[in-house]
Each structure stands twice: as structure tokens, then as C-alpha cells.
Simulated assay, not measured.
Amino acid sequence: MKFIHLTDIHLTRSGATLNGGDPAANLSRVLADIAEWHSDAAFCVISGDLADEGDPEAYGWLQEQLQAFPLPVFLMLGNHDVRETFLQVFPDHPRDANGFVQYSRTADGAKFVFLDTLTGGPGVHDGELCATRLAWLEEELEQAGDAPVFLFMHHPPFDIGLPYVDDIKLRGPDAFHAALQKGRNIRHIFYGHIHRITYVNWRGYPFTSLPSTNHQIPLVPERVGTDYSVEPLAYSVVQVNEDQVTVHFDAYLDRPGQAAGG
């Protein structure tokens, strides 16, 4: 099967620019490119930081765009989101019994689990999976049995060597790792938050991340002199079969002279 992953779209109120990019225009180009070239995908995941300031106008604009998009889209929350505001705009969006925006879906014999790592509160950007959310995850993993499981989360539980994001990673990594051990066949874990392409094998589990669709976090901040950099945006095209998981990072839209459909 094939699915699409994108993350950290950081939509702003009234389409304002952000850190050198135009989040709404960039997302429009990405969605158009996916619709033209990957309409055969089973679904698309946007793994958090949907709205840069959790603004209802930004969520409303996203809702309008997705109505015309040909693929099912699974939305997740990141540290820039506001859970209550998101649910006001998306009142029918799936959530668990405790109101967290986490849920699971099955497709092609596999289970896909979408976690809510949003801590919440003004100025709080590190992530959290409280005991309630971890208990939900453990139950989902136990119910999956031997079926392949793919996890999606916003905050990673590990450092990547960039203090800017390492300081705001997931709290309580040991508790998260203990929950993962309830799963018998976790194939891959996808995450966002760090605005970079990475592959990490953490305690035996493979993780990948990808760039934001708007702005990136430089690998060497001193090279650019700011916390953010204008680097190629990308989305990932994931192909899964019985014995292989392939993650393509497609930066097509950032090639000179190219545009969606070009």
C-alpha cells in the first residue's frame, strides 16, 4: 500500500507569511501536487502544528482545502496547536474517550495509530503522553496482535543533536518506550516537530521525520544566523509491503522553475 505523510504546515491567520514562507500558498502547492501525482495513495497524514498560533481562522481555511482534496486526511496536533480550538472547527474529528485527539485506523491488514503529544498551555512546547494517553496506546497495541503497526506522533522521544528542538522533545521517554513494548509488530514510527529529514533508530525502533511545508530548522544554526532557514520543503511518499517499508522524501516543488503539475 501507499500513503502520504506531511507535517508542520504552520498555517497563519489571514494567510500571513511566517519565517520567510507563505504557509497557505505552500500547502496549496503541496496538496495540488499530491492530488495530481499520488491520487492512488490510500490516505494522507498531517502530523501536527497545523496552525502556527492555534487560530480558528487557520483551522477553518484548512478545513475548506481538505473538502476538495481527493484523499482521506488524518490530522494530528503539535505544540503550536490548541486542542479546544481545533475541536471547535473540526467537531466530528475522532478522539479517544478522554477527549485527546488520538485514534487508530486499519488498512490493508495493518494498524495505523495517531498519537496526541500536545501538552498545552501558553508557551509550552515540549510534548507529553500522560498516563491516560499511554494506557490508550498500550491497549491499541495489544489489540493489534501480530498485525503490522505504524505509529505517528509529533514530538520525538529522543535528542537529535539540535538544542533548539532537543529542549522541547517528548517528556518521559522511558514510559513511552515501556508502552511500545506492548506491540508485537511495530514496523515504523513517523514524527514531525523538528523540521528536518532524519532517520533515527531509537532503542530498536525505526523513526523518520521530514521537513515542514513552510520553514526549516538549520542543522548548523551558526551557518545561517537564525533559528529558522529557507530550505526545500518536502512531503514523504511511503510504500509498504510484507517485507519492506520505503520512505521517499519528495522535494519536487523546490526545484527551480517547477510548480505543481509542471
Rank of each mutant, 00 (worst) to 15 (best):
H248G: 06
G78P: 11
N26K: 07
V73D: 11
D146V: 04
Y252G: 09
L87W: 01
S104K: 15
G54D: 11
G262Y: 01
L75P: 02
K111A: 12
D174C: 02
Q143R: 14
G48E: 11
Y205G: 01
R13K: 06
F3C: 10
Y191E: 14
N26F: 12
Y191M: 11
A41C: 13
S28M: 11
I4E: 01
L137P: 09
G183F: 08
A259K: 04
N19Y: 04
E231T: 09
F158P: 10
A97Y: 03
R29C: 11
V149P: 09
M1P: 12
L6N: 10
F90Q: 07
H154T: 05
D254N: 15
E84P: 00
D126P: 00
Y199I: 01
P56I: 09
A260P: 01
D22Y: 04
A42D: 02
V220P: 04
D92M: 03
A144Y: 03
F190Q: 10
A51W: 01
P72K: 09
L18K: 04
H5I: 13
V89N: 05
F207S: 05
R95M: 15
G145K: 05
L137A: 07
T246W: 03
L27D: 09
I168W: 05
I4Q: 13
A107D: 15
H188E: 11
P157G: 11
S209K: 07
H177G: 03
Y228Q: 07
V82K: 03
G20L: 12
R95L: 14
S212K: 09
R203I: 02
D8M: 06
W202Y: 15
Y205F: 06
T213A: 14
P163L: 01
L18M: 05
K182D: 00
P221K: 00
W37G: 08
D40V: 09
T119Q: 04
A147N: 06
R187N: 00
I194S: 07
E140R: 08
P163A: 08
G262T: 04
R255L: 12
E231I: 07
N241S: 11
G48L: 11
Y228V: 02
R133Y: 00
D8W: 02
S47Q: 14
V200Q: 12
G78W: 11
H215R: 12
E84R: 07
R184N: 08
G121F: 04
H38C: 00
D40P: 06
C130S: 10
P163E: 02
Q102K: 13
M76K: 12
L77W: 12
A107L: 15
A107N: 14
Q65I: 11
K182F: 00
L71M: 14
V165C: 04
Q63I: 06
R203C: 04
A147L: 10
G161R: 05
A175H: 01
R83G: 00
L134Y: 07
D243L: 10
A147K: 11
V124Y: 02
P91N: 08
I194R: 02
V220N: 14
F207T: 06
